[in-house]
Write a protein that binds this DNA or RNA. Structure first.
Lengths: 222, 222
DNA sequence: TTAACGCCGTACCGTACGTTACGGTTCGGC
DNA sequence: GCCGAACCGTAACGTACGGTACGGCGTTAA
């Protein structure tokens, strides 16, 4: 009974106790991987299974609520694209890139994406049933696009960027930032991203993006 | 030369009957998703469960054999980077991009990657135990790198490309080609890639890559 | 002909887990 | 102090599935 499209902010409709339970489920998910059993959650959260079923309906409901709960916690700070010059635009892009790399390389994100991918492989869900993959996509890749596109548009208005389609430009930026990182992590590849490498990758991706979509007007070489 | 462990080429050591069984498992994997039960495989392949266990040891062994069997089938044609001029280089890159997009958007690849991702989430595997994620990575992303890098190096030798690190250049190319496609597909996003869009994406990714890494010598505008 | 062998089909076992049921405890309201 | 609601802990139930055992059948070979 929670959400279909997952619009409602979880932090509103949940009691503190329920949030604590979902936090426990989240921790368990990160630590134990797919071994997320109802008994384990109940034990970890010091609550009864009966309560779990009353609150979340069934295992799928618990999973969905957990994913949405995590999603409601990572609302990233929106970057205002007001004073747009090349330096501030680059800074904004680097910030987005860095934030995104941190997100997709976090244990929580990896665990959640693993669950959602596995969930998408089950065919039982009827049309319109809330599936975890959609929730993760909506709060991950699509949320990023929604926040980044205004910045890109502002850059275009200011004559700093040139592109026909913001969606296409965003996807290129996405590719330049993420490259093979997410898939490798999901497949279990060790690949520790330190603060330094993330920062370097963010700068590199931003430079490449600007090289591809930066306006050719003005005296910028490269 | 393909895998780290499990070097044996599947097509060599398997009998025809065994290949047929693995094909049945593969089909079942694509159709039913994670509902790959031993009983279902036995029924689909018209063999007994006892035979499955004798041949593949346990469920994990069957899964691994299935993944490796599929991997042994998709040996992509190696592109020879001999006569290197800009046009042939671009054609090679477009070919790689197109092939890769076709692979990652195929039902088989999606199903296999889903299984491998789920597998990577289970923590029970002792160090060195063959895990599906490594096999998929080795035959996917890393195999692509092994085949593409010689082409990149040849382009560099011919003065057509400029880069310091082939690995880094490859990863950028990878990002420009795949962008968000694989993650979205794994998460269940509908996203049909037609022959036309794949071709267009391959051309775009190649142009962008050449814009970033193409040598600045000579009269090439963009 | 018959003995050995490989494999199919199926029944069977043990276990893990989702789900339900129930007794006991805490707590707010009257 | 009493009642009811909410909740905890745990036992119990049903099922699905990995894994094993066994009888039967076709094929090969002595």
């Amino acid at each position: 009974m929670l959400q279909t499209r997952a619009e409602i902010d979880s932090s509103e409709t949940l009691t503190e106790r329920q949030k604590a339970v979902l936090d426990a489920a989240l921790r368990l998910l990160v630590e134990e991987g797919d071994q997320l059993t109802m008994t384990a959650v109940a034990r970890r959260a010091s609550c009864s299974k009966e309560t779990l079923y009353k609150w979340f309906g069934d295992r799928d409901g618990l999973l969905t609520a957990t994913v949405q709960w995590q999603a409601s916690k990572v609302r990233v700070a929106p970057v205002d694209g007001k004073g747009v010059d090349l330096a501030s635009l680059a800074t904004s892009l680097e910030r987005f890139a860095s934030d995104w790399l941190k997100v997709i390389s976090s244990d929580t994100s990896i665990a959640l994406n693993r669950v959602a991918v596995g969930h998408a492989g089950s065919i039982k869900r009827k049309e319109g049933k809330d599936d975890l993959g959609a929730v993760v996509l909506e709060n991950g890749r699509f949320a990023l696009a929604r926040r980044l596109k205004p910045v890109l548009e502002a850059g275009k208005q200011a004559g700093l960027l040139e592109f026909a389609d913001a969606e296409s430009a965003f996807r290129t930026f996405f590719g330049l930032v993420a490259r093979d990182v997410q898939v490798r992590l999901l497949l279990g590849d060790r690949l520790e991203l330190t603060e330094a490498t993330i920062g370097g990758d963010a700068v590199r991706a931003t430079q490449q993006f600007l090289a591809l979509f930066g306006a050719k007007t003005g005296p910028q070489g490269l």
